[in-house]
Design a protein around this nucleic acid. Structure first.
Lengths: 362, 362
DNA sequence: ATGAAAGCGCTAACAT
DNA sequence: ATGTTAGCGCTTTCAT
């Protein structure tokens, strides 16, 4: 008897068996009722099962179900840092769609570290996530790329849906904007304002999106017969942008730059701060533009001219693509998509100012 | 033959059986080797198993394992909005600890909606999350509270570890700071600067942390023989703070306020913007202080005086408490903890300025 | 309309 | 040191 109580406690959580027993039906019938499948079940039986489930506070085991159906209903999402508003917004887009479809979204912070990334891919793979969304570009170290490719290959048989979001990944279809062309357009905006000497604060050398943006910047300048006046590498953080901008502004006399283009908003915000502490007026003495259009861009002083990335939509689109691919059992390849971006002109960029302080039109 | 190929594909993912077979051992031995338990296994056997697992790119099923061990190794975290830097920072603290212990953290955005909250609690419960961390205070609607309590009760037998973080929850131990006393200290700071007419921008009426902060503010004023000069309700967002502050500043002449205390940083930032657009200098004409010390506070113009909440540490502490409780099989109650906060004085608060514009000491 | 039985992939007694 | 066996809680043929 005591033993039985012990058992009771260990196996206390009401399972389908208990529900079935209490309703006086087979476990099969209980399952059918509770899953609401369109299976013929007598109304009375159905009621009894529902009642029993309710009385026992039955909560189906997603684990057991996943094991037998081979559908975990989980989606894994890898982001550099969820505290970064850019990633957060994308993640929200993913989640908003996933939730409606009954999927659980597992977001993992990789800190952009390839090893951490791999560990999470493995873990999510062990949980049999039905799709993996890798947000943000991969590093450019070939060894890391190979390691990841091997991982992907190993997961092959499981037909996990895999997708690159906002940054390309070797071997994966990407849902993205055209970073290069966007950076080109932004540069064009600066050129049209009359700027000829433009400084650039780039993202981490090893990140593909950072490279694409810089390439777009350089190409637009080149087309106008120019080259970057000065460039610095940042790390996509405010502090990084602040430092880089300080370095750039130190050489302001030599370079005579009239504008700075930062590869993301955070760094542009840092640049704004650097200008402020140096007593340089924006946009009168110096134009500063960013990339991303995170909430902080609009709230900045002055409000930041930047590239609007449809972050939320990017997330939604990626998730929808995943859902479609999952339904196709991972056998139909995901088609890459490029979403439209937009240059948002705010007060941080203005017409090129001559050294004497007077504006110059274009 | 054709049929067999079909089977192959459906059951393609290498399981323990395949590994065991290939290594020429029993499934048990394979399991023992791969789990690295301190069980006597011949070195040669071990090697063969490891080799087989590698060749087959074996990835254990966390699902199957969770089912039998009754340990999902998952932690559920409910936050209002992960895009809010306050929540994001806390979530990182949780994840940093969880990761080291091999736990997978599932973060869910509730948008502070009680119904969404309940749905996620149910879902996480179905996945047999070993712990649930509810970040941020609950709403004050009794019906919602009862519904949640019922949910918790239903989960009782599963002994899920449950914890409130940064905001209390009926029935749950909380890891938090003392919001009331922190708000009191901040008010004291304002009083010491000579401010006597202070406006207040509160958080949503229905949120317990918001109430605690406002209570602390009122009590500190009361102790000084004062009452709030004017109060407005915000929603913890920048836009909400901006609006509330506009309303407050419209009545500046009547109220003669010299300071505004916002219940969180986002709203304080909005207030800063409202002051700027009204041509009111901060801190010369008006002091503005916030609560939270998110990254944006330091980057604001002027930098924001605020209450530093040890967000990351709060997350770490909560996760550690969970781990401990999980080890104790959820049978030892979690003990509530109050972590220290700190008033961080920056340039947005200053000595009370007289109507004529001259400063006044204290 | 209902039920019996065979697993999903794994761990954990309990042998040997 | 290794293997056999009985499930974990569920879905899903296949019978009835």
């Amino acid at each position: 008897m005591n033993y039985k109580v012990g058992l009771q406690q260990r196996f206390s959580m009401a399972g389908l068996i208990e529900v079935a027993r209490r309703a006086g039906v087979s476990i099969t019938t209980a399952s059918r009722v509770l899953n609401g499948v369109d299976y013929p079940v007598a109304a009375a039986t159905r009621r009894r099962v529902l009642r029993a489930a309710d009385e026992l506070s039955y909560a189906p085991s997603a684990l057991a179900r996943a094991l037998v159906t081979r559908r975990s209903k989980m989606i894994g999402v890898l982001v550099g840092d969820i505290a970064d508003p850019y990633f957060a917004e994308i993640a929200r887009g993913i989640e908003d769609i996933a939730r409606d479809e009954g999927y659980l979204v597992v977001i993992c912070n990789t800190d952009r570290d390839p090893a951490t990334e791999r560990r999470y891919v493995s873990t999510l793979s062990e949980y049999r996530a039905e799709a993996l969304i890798l947000v943000g570009g991969e590093g450019t170290d070939p060894a890391d790329q190979r390691a990841m490719a091997r991982l992907f290959a190993a997961m092959g048989p499981r037909k996990t849906v895999m997708l690159a979001l906002a940054g390309s990944r070797t071997g994966l279809a990407a849902i993205d904007i055209d970073h290069e062309s966007a950076a080109g357009d932004m540069t064009q905006h600066l050129l049209e304002l009359g700027h000829r000497a433009v400084g650039y604060i780039g993202g981490p050398r090893g990140v593909v999106t950072a490279r694409a943006r810089e390439a777009g910047f350089r190409e637009a300048l080149r087309a106008a017969g120019l080259t970057p006046a000065i460039t610095r590498e940042g790390d996509f953080t405010y502090a990084g942008g602040l430092n880089a901008a300080r370095g750039i502004l130190e050489q302001r006399l030599e370079t005579r730059i009239t504008a700075i283009f930062a590869a993301n908003d955070q760094m542009a915000l840092g640049a704004l701060a650097a200008a402020r502490e140096a007593g340089i007026r924006v946009p009168n003495d110096l134009s500063i533009v960013g990339f991303g259009d995170t909430a902080a861009a609009e709230q900045a002083v002055p409000p930041l001219t930047t590239v609007r990335i449809p972050s939320h939509k990017l997330g939604e689109t990626a998730m929808r693509a995943c859902l479609k691919a999952i339904e196709a059992n991972g056998e139909v390849p995901i088609e890459p998509q490029l979403l439209p971006y937009r240059i948002v002109v705010r007060a941080s960029s203005g017409a090129h100012a001559n050294p004497d302080g007077t504006k110059k039109g274009h």
